[in-house]
Each structure stands twice: as C-alpha cells, then as structure tokens.
Nucleic acid binder design. Sequence first.
RNA 1: GGUGGGGUUCCCGAGUGGCUAAAGGGGGCAGACUGUAAAUCUGCUGGUUGUACCUUCGGUGGUUCGAAUCCACCCCCCACCA
Length: 431
Amino acid sequence: MKSVYRELQDRGFVYQETDAGSIEKLLNTGSVTFYVGFDPTGSSLHVGHLLPIMAMRLLQRAGHVPIALVGGATAQIGDPSGRVSARPILTKEEVAANARALKAQLARFISLDSGQAHFVDNADWLCRINYLDFLREIGSRFSVNKMLAQDSVKSRLEDGLTFLEFNYSILQAYDFVVLNRDYGCQMQFGGQDQWGNMVAGVELARKMGREGVECLTFPLLLDSAGKKFGKTAGGHNVWLDVNRTPVFEYYQFWRNCDDAALAKLLCYFTALPVEEIRRLTDGNKDARELNRAKEILAYEATALAHGEAAAREAFLTAGGKFGFADPEGTIATSSAVAAIDVKTAREEALPTVELPAADFAGEGMWIAKLMVAAGLCPSTSEARRLIQGGGAYLNDQRVADVALNVKAGDFSGGELLLKAGKKQIKRVKLQ
RNA sequence: GGUGGGGUUCCCGAGUGGCUAAAGGGGGCAGACUGUAAAUCUGCUGGUUGUACCUUCGGUGGUUCGAAUCCACCCCCCACCA
C-alpha cells in the first residue's frame, strides 16, 4: 500500500513544502488534522479551485481530517497575493451566503460529517480581536522588513498596497495558530501563491511554541496559453454550479483538454490509479487512445462534481453528437465509463432553452436574436458577426444569410438545434 | 504638504481638434486543416428592431460647427522631495 504522501507526490500535488521529511512522517503516522483556506468571494467554486479540493479528498480518504476554512473575515480585507489591484470589499451578508454555497459544493468532494471534517469561518475569531492585544501578542512577532521582502507584497509595492491588505498575511498566519490551538491542526495546504502567507503561519506558530506544524503548496495550473487553468469559452470560468455551467458544458470542458495536459489532469482530477493513467497516456498514443483517455477524464471529473448519472448522460450526449472514441470497449480501464452501453446514446441532455411558440409565428424571429435568446451569444452584434463569419448552424446547416428569420416551420417536433461554432450547442424547444 | 509624470476599448499600449468605434500587440471567438487536441493560416473582435443611428477614452462642467485630443475644477495612481 502506497503512502498518502507518496500518492500526493506521484500525482503531482507537491510543489513547495516546509520540510519533506517531517511532512512525510507526519502524514504517514496517524491521523493529521490539516486545513485549506477558501475565499468566500464568489457564490460558486470553479474548476480553478478544484486542485486543493482533490488533495483534501485524497488526504481524507487516507484517514486525515480536513478543515475547510472560510475566510469570512479575511475576505473583508482581500488577499493581495497574486493580485494586481485591491479586491472589492464584500458585505458580511454576501460573505455568509457565499460560505453556505461553498459548503454545499465542497460536500460533493469530501465528507463533511462530524469527526471527519470541520468547516470553520475565521470571522468567528478574527472579528473578536482587540487591536491593541493583537498588536502586542501577534504583531510583535512579525518583522516588517521580512514582510516587505515577500514576493506578493513586493510586486504590489510599486503600484500601491494599502495597510489593510498588508495585514492580510498576519491574519492568515494567526488563523493557523488558532486552528492549531483549537483543533490540533498541524498542516496547511494551499496554492502556490499562498506560500508566503502559509510560511508566515508556520513561523508564527513555531514562535509561539507550537511544535510539529508544517505546510505544503500545490502547483499552479496553467493552460497551454500560460493562463490560469479553468477558464474557457470566452475566458469564462467553468463553474461547479449547474446554473452557471450546465453539466454537458462541464463535461465538454474536460473532454476538450490539451493533449499535453491529459496525464496531469487525470492524476489531479480523477481517482484512477497512477499506474493506469500512465498506461492510458504514456508513449505514442494514437488519436483513438488519446480521445478515450479524454472521455475517461471528462466522465470521472464530471461524476465527482455532478454524480455518476449526470456524467453518464453527458458522456452519451457528447458521444451521440461527436462520436465515441472506443465504442467496443477495447481499451482497459477501471473507470465506470467502460460499463456504459454506448448504444443508448442520445441527444436529450443537450443544454436546452425553451422559448414561447408565439415568437416564431408569422414573420418569425431574427436568427441573431435567437442566438442571443438561446444564450449562445452575448449580443446581437456578436451573433451577426458570428453568422457572417460562417460560425452559426441551424439544425446542423450553416446559416448563410444574416437576415434569416427562424419560423415555426424550422422546428421539427417542436425542437431545433442551434450551434455557435462546432462545439457550443443549444437545443431550442417550443413552449 | 510641495514638484513632476500619468489615468484610452477585456489586458498592454499608440493617439495632442475633424480622415477615430479609436494604430499595434496580447487574449478571445469563428473559418480552413484535424482527432470535439495542439500548431499553422485567414477573418472578426462597443451596442442597437438588422448599416444607420447610439454610447465609449478617470469624473463634472466649459470652449468649438466639431473634443480621447483645448480650458477649469475634482477624483485616483506613480516618482522624487518634505
């Protein structure tokens, strides 16, 4: 049985760590309570947040206890790390609502049952702080010289950093001390950009006589263009909230990943054994093998976020539309996707919009308007450009005429298929 | 507090009275080629009842037939000095 630490390493989760030896020992002996911080600055998580969550999942399954910390207090300040400018300050109500949403989404990946995990909000202790006491007890242990040397601070020094933001890392460091004191938390995990803040926490804890505390960061995921991973379709985030990113689109996000990133993504975002991932992706794979591996990635990642049933449906829908990579099931895999009978493929699960039948009576509806109504284009101007560029399809036929009006007769069985480009598909249903 | 330099479209950045919805690059989208990939080439890249109109160059007023460009005041950022 491979140790969790080795598993984390093999899967590429380890980027920086305070002390590899100590951490390995810590994680391999007994149950360790660890924490990962989340900013409740949005009402939904997106794919970019997933890496730490997958690590939490892995660690929890190995018997460790995660603490998901919501930065209810620190979100009111804004972390300057990796930020060009100050964040907008949220109201307390917004933060509370976001924290609730976060908890619900987290519950799909890790068990939040009592004893197996904790869900805490740093507002619970940070809001009670007395300024003078805090300065004396905590502030006295920080060196401004050292803080100024921190990358995240240094880069902001040129174009301005407020005192408010400057305090962020002190508060985050204090979080670690509180969690260590109250929950016996010994480790912090986080993104690469959190290194400075995390080390500050470890240092503070040690200065305050708390032993055996460590931290470890995950690598920053970049796409082929060198941008933060998890954005697609016009630079939009891929959300875990189905109201923002339908399951089919979520599936497609993974299905359309870069060849070069495939093995890495399988390691991070699925639970398949590393050995199997290697077998699926190593060496010179042909198109069929690569595409099968992408199907597996998409299925597994979607199943984690939205459940097996939804993933299965997305797989069948996508396959029905674009074809299946391995319909005979000749490529061995432990993924449940192998058990799906591709003959049941259908297009029912395509993202659907319902529009009133009256819109299509008589003269009908201008195609550009329809594209907007279907959510395929943000504006009629953009829709018009798309059509002129030959990127719009009505029932799989390229729309040649910008002035085309869609009438009731274009629907068959009360439905019609609308595409923006080859991959963005919407089914329009008459109401 | 003083002096100087700045704030331009998603981002960087040109533009110092009309030819400017605003150069160039990045990003994004689409087309071709492919494997629902990458790379490459080509086109597009403010909005709108659909090509003529509307809105945009930190904010508010003003000069002018006409302002991103000139003037006044204000806000914000940077550098140096205190």
